Simulated assay, not measured.
Amino acid sequence: MISLWIAQASAAAQPPNADATGGWLVDPELVAPGYTQTMAGGTIQTAFPPPPPPPNTPEWLKTLGDAVRSLFDWLSPLGEPLLWIGGILLVLLLLYLFVPAFAQWVDDLRYRRKRQALADEADLAGHAEAGAARILLGEADELAAAGRYAEAVHLLLYRSVADISDRRPGLVQPAMTSRDLAAATDLPGVAREAFSRIARAVEISLFGGRAIDAGAWEQCRTAYAEMTVPRNWVRT
Rank of each mutant, 00 (worst) to 15 (best):
D73C: 01
L89Y: 01
K62W: 01
G87L: 10
F72N: 13
W84A: 05
V91L: 14
G86D: 05
F72E: 14
L95N: 01
K62G: 00
L93S: 02
G87P: 00
L95I: 03
I85M: 11
G87I: 00
L92P: 00
F72R: 15
L82V: 05
S76A: 14
G79P: 00
L93Q: 01
S76H: 08
G65M: 08
L78V: 05
I88R: 02
D73V: 08
R69L: 06
L90Y: 14
L71Y: 10
D66A: 15
L71G: 09
T63I: 09
L83D: 09
D73S: 08
R69D: 06
E80Q: 07
E80D: 06
P81L: 01
S70D: 14
D66N: 12
D66I: 12
S70G: 10
L64K: 09
L83F: 01
P77Y: 02
P81Y: 01
L90P: 01
P77V: 03
S70L: 14
T63E: 13
L93E: 02
L71W: 06
F72W: 10
Y96T: 09
L94T: 05
L71H: 07
L78R: 11
L90D: 07
W84N: 03
D66C: 00
L92F: 12
S70Q: 14
W84R: 05
T63A: 13
L71R: 03
L92Q: 07
E80G: 04
K62D: 05
D66Y: 07
L83R: 14
G86W: 01
L83C: 00
L82Y: 06
I88M: 15
I85G: 10
R69K: 09
L95K: 00
G79M: 01
R69T: 11
P81N: 03
L95V: 03
V91H: 00
W74D: 12
P77H: 05
L97K: 13
L64M: 10
D73R: 08
G79N: 07
L78Q: 11
L82W: 06
G86S: 11
L82E: 06
I88W: 13
G79D: 10
E80P: 02
L78A: 13
S70A: 15
S70R: 15
V68K: 05
L83M: 03
E80C: 00
W74E: 12
R69N: 07
E80A: 07
L90G: 13
L97R: 14
I88L: 15
Y96A: 14
Y96I: 03
G87E: 02
